[in-house]
Each structure stands twice: as C-alpha cells, then as structure tokens.
Amino acid sequence: MPGCLWRDLWGRWRRYKYRFVPWIALNLSHNPRTLRYVPEESKDKVISDEDVLGTLLKVFQALFINDFNKQSDILTVLPESIKSKYQDLLSIQHPGLKMLEYGHQQQTIFNPEEILYQTLGFSIARAASSLVSAGKGVFITKGLAPKGAVVSMYPGTVYMKYEPVFFQSIGNPFIFRCLDGVLIDGNDKGISRIVYRSCNGRDQLGPLKMSDSTWLTSEMNNPLAIGQYVNNCSNDRSANVCYQEFDVPEIFPIELKQYLPNITYSYEKQSLLRCVVLVALRDIKQGEELFSNYYTIVS
C-alpha cells in the first residue's frame, strides 16, 4: 500500500511540477528556451492589439452568424442597424438560404471547431499531452496555424492584484499572472468554477451575456477558450506559442461579448477587461501540440 501511495503522489507531482512556480524558478537556468525576454512591459507584443482584436471579431462574428437562428432574444434588443448588418452578412455568405416562418433563415449549422477552421484555417482541441505524465494538452487538430496567429485564449475570472484569491489558489495550477500583477483563474472545477458562474450571472443584462461560461462544460461556444491546458515547454520541447495580454476595448460589439471567456471578479466597473491570448511563434502544423514559455521576463 505505501508503495502504491508513493507512486500515485509521484505521478501527481510529475504532472503538476510544470505549473508549480518554485519548481519552475529553480529550473529556469537549465533551459533558457523556456524564457521569453522583452525590453519592457509595454512591448510585450508579438502581434499588435489591432491584429488580436481583428482575429477575435472575425471568429466571434462567424460564430454568431452560424448560431443566428438561436440569437432571436438578443436580436430583439439590438438596434436595427446591427440586425440588418448580420442579415446582410448572412445573405452574402449563404445566398441560397430559404426564409422560414418569423423571418428566420434555414442554414447549415456547423460545430464551433469547424467554424474556427473555416475562419482561421485551423482548429484546436484538448487531448492527452505528448509529455509523459503531463495530463491534457492542446493540439492543432486540422489545418495549419501560421506564425503570428491567435491560436487560443486563456479563460477564467480576472482578479486585480489587491483582490483575494487564497482559497481559489489552493491546489490550483491554472492561475495565470499578468505582468502587472493581474491574475486570471482558468480552473474549470471547484471554487473557481462556482466563482466564475456567479460573476457570469451577475453581469448578464437581460438576454445579453457579457461573457461565455460554456468553457466550463464539454460543449463550448468559443473553441479558442482552452488556453489554460497549453503545457509549458520542456528541455526537449521548445515553445511554439507565447502568451500575450490584451485589454478588450470599449468599442467591442456588445452582441459578441457572449464569446469572451473572461469576466472580472469585482462588481465595480474596471477600466477594461483583461484577456490573455496565445500567439504562434512559428507555423504550427496539424497534429502538433502547443507549448508555451514558462515566463515572460522583462529585461
């Protein structure tokens, strides 16, 4: 029995150590490829914020149109200019659609992963990692993710550095720390899951959802929202993606906020919603696993 217990604990440690900050800090010097150096916080950008925004809008708009028939509650509270925009976009993309009762249109519905592939040329999914005892990882399952592409998002509750995260952090390997101390809790279980669902319901305005909670389930609306499962690189696996912080601008379309997999913990209005995306450092082919740097080091 003691031997089985020890093997179980050792297996858990081997899976967890790549996300355990003290272990990472002690092992950074063994592999400089796990570090990414930037000159200062303001220059921690592989691609511009405009490119990140453009990608998210492109994907979210495609998801919205794909799910257009189920958006009736939202469309009723949107201005006529926005409704007509989507009707025009839908008619351009599907010119042969038949009008159904109540003005809805008959269309082919694709799953979110297929929409991602049609929109960006690749799709991603979770699967058993190629790292021994690393648990789950994220793979390019179809197509090719070119250098500079936004390949995933880090979902979760956003905490300012003065907000409490002690209980959420216990045994939690999914807390991401931004350069300015802002934390994102990407755990989809336990207290973290409860907190996110609570904040998600708190901020909903009638039929308008201000964030996406489906990343907590197996049926996700936003296929990019699995970035918390991207494993850190190792001595024999160099990083092919890196984290990039992105603040959602005020001009972000309200009807597309339902696909944002982040929400603030505090009810008080923050300046901008913090998101973190993962950006490809090189072309990543079908079947490859995504590996990130441990840290971004400001030099």
Rank of each mutant, 00 (worst) to 15 (best):
F176D: 01
I191A: 09
R193G: 00
V138H: 07
V138K: 08
V182D: 03
S152I: 10
L179W: 11
M153G: 11
M160N: 04
Y154W: 10
K142S: 07
S123H: 01
L183W: 06
A149N: 12
Q107N: 08
A125W: 02
E101M: 15
K136V: 09
D185F: 07
G143W: 14
Q168Y: 06
D203E: 10
R126L: 09
M160K: 15
L208V: 12
I109N: 03
N200F: 10
S152R: 05
C199W: 04
S198P: 06
C178N: 02
D185V: 07
E113M: 03
K209A: 06
L131M: 04
S192K: 12
L205Q: 14
I170L: 15
I109V: 12
E113G: 04
V138M: 10
P112Y: 03
P112D: 02
M153T: 13
S192N: 04
G186A: 04
L183E: 03
Q118R: 09
Q118L: 03
M153P: 06
P164W: 10
T119E: 00
E113Y: 03
G156C: 05
V195Q: 14
P112Q: 01
S192A: 13
C199H: 11
P164I: 14
G143A: 13
A145C: 10
I124L: 08
P146C: 01
P146V: 07
Y117F: 06
G121H: 02
L144N: 08
F174C: 02
T141C: 11
L116S: 01
G96D: 14
L205M: 11
M160Q: 15
A127V: 00
S133I: 11
R202S: 07
F167P: 05
N111R: 06
E114M: 04
M99F: 09
Y117S: 03
G206Q: 12
G206L: 11
F110N: 05
E101W: 13
N200M: 02
S133Q: 12
H94F: 15
I194H: 12
L97A: 09
G103P: 05
K147V: 06
T108C: 03
I115E: 01
E114Y: 02
A145W: 13
M160L: 15
G186V: 06
K98M: 14
G96F: 14
E163I: 05
P207L: 14
H94Q: 11
Y102V: 13
G186R: 09
D188T: 12
S211W: 09
M160I: 05
K98G: 09
S198K: 14
G181S: 08
R193Y: 06
R197A: 03
Q168L: 01
Q107H: 07
S129C: 07
V138Q: 07
L144E: 08
A125Q: 05
V158P: 08
I191M: 10
I115K: 02
Q107M: 13
P146F: 12
K189Q: 13
G181Y: 10
G137A: 11
L179C: 03
Q168W: 02
S152P: 12
P207D: 14
L208Q: 06
L205N: 12
P173Q: 00
H104M: 14
F176I: 04
N111T: 02
G186P: 10
Y102R: 15
F139Q: 08
L120Y: 01
